[in-house]
């Protein structure tokens, strides 16, 4: 079997497990949606007054990106469980390519991200979010979300290789993701930040991906942020995938 087929097979296994767990499904979907409703109700009035355009056009892509990055916690904990229960060892003893074990986890979880983001996008249509850029822009939109998500899925996977328990994975990723969300253009325009924080907020990968998504859905700059986020994701994928395989062989 080729690496690709092995990866697809393992990815399918991970996706099926996710779809089979009702609680996991509910948690992954409920959190981003709850966040969206709350931001709209609590801060909608204040932010709309300070920026042009409807708040949902800014908020919806941010919620989708956060949902995508937040899935990394599930990836980290899930892969840690696979290591702990010996499943990864079992795979290693089989005549399959070792990278497929890691790539299978990430690809399967990217499928999960796609489901979560598609559902979130459908729900954001209720308060008025629209894809206004045509079918190609929609494809590019989901492509950017997946590229962005892959960065965090690989990070979580490497973290799972180092972690001593699940608690460490959750407690490390949670504040990092929250920080990225706060210090980004996702909730308010960059101009609403204090001057000394603007460079930080501008160079936040979540802001870059967010600018590209807003451009693709409701208009604005696309080319530069799109290239930036795709390059960043490519670098992370190329570096972390072999690194994960090496770390695993060294540690276990």
């Amino acid at each position: 079997m080729s690496v690709l087929r092995e990866t697809a097979l393992l990815a399918g296994r991970n996706l099926l497990r996710f779809l089979g767990s009702k609680q996991l499904l509910a948690n992954t979907l409920a959190f981003p949606l709850a966040l969206m409703v709350m931001m709209l109700v609590v801060f909608g009035k204040i932010v709309s007054a300070a920026s042009d355009g409807a708040y949902i056009d800014r908020l919806a892509p941010a919620i989708m990106l956060f949902g995508a990055a937040y899935s990394a916690i599930g990836t980290g904990v899930g892969f840690f469980t696979d290591i702990r229960t010996g499943l990864v060892d079992r795979f290693c003893s089989m005549p399959i390519n070792r990278s497929a074990i890691f790539a299978g986890r990430v690809c399967g979880d990217l499928g999960r991200v796609l489901i979560v983001v598609a559902v979130t996008a459908a729900v954001t249509y209720i308060p008025g979010f629209r894809f206004a850029g045509g079918p190609l822009a929609v494809l590019a939109f989901f492509g950017v979300v997946l590229a962005f998500a892959s960065i965090f899925l690989w990070l979580a996977l490497v973290l799972a290789l180092f972690a001593r328990n699940e608690d460490v994975i959750i407690s490390m990723l949670n504040p990092i993701l929250q920080l990225l969300l706060f210090f980004s253009s996702g909730f308010v325009p960059i101009t609403a930040f204090p001057v000394f924080l603007r460079p930080v907020a501008e160079s936040n990968p979540l802001s870059i991906a967010h600018t590209a998504l807003v451009g693709l859905s409701s208009g604005g700059p696309v080319a530069v942020p799109l290239v930036q986020i795709v390059v960043l994701a490519a670098i992370v994928n190329v570096l972390l995938a072999p690194l994960a395989a090496r770390l695993y062989s060294r540690r276990y």
């Binding site: 949670n174 504040p175 929250q178 706060f182 210090f183 308010v188 609403a192 930040f193 204090p194």
Partner: peptide, 18 residues
Amino acid sequence: IFPLVFLYGFLAIFGTLL
């Protein structure tokens, strides 16, 4: 750590607006 993320995060994004 988490309380600081929340305090400074909310301050950064909504401080100027409010």
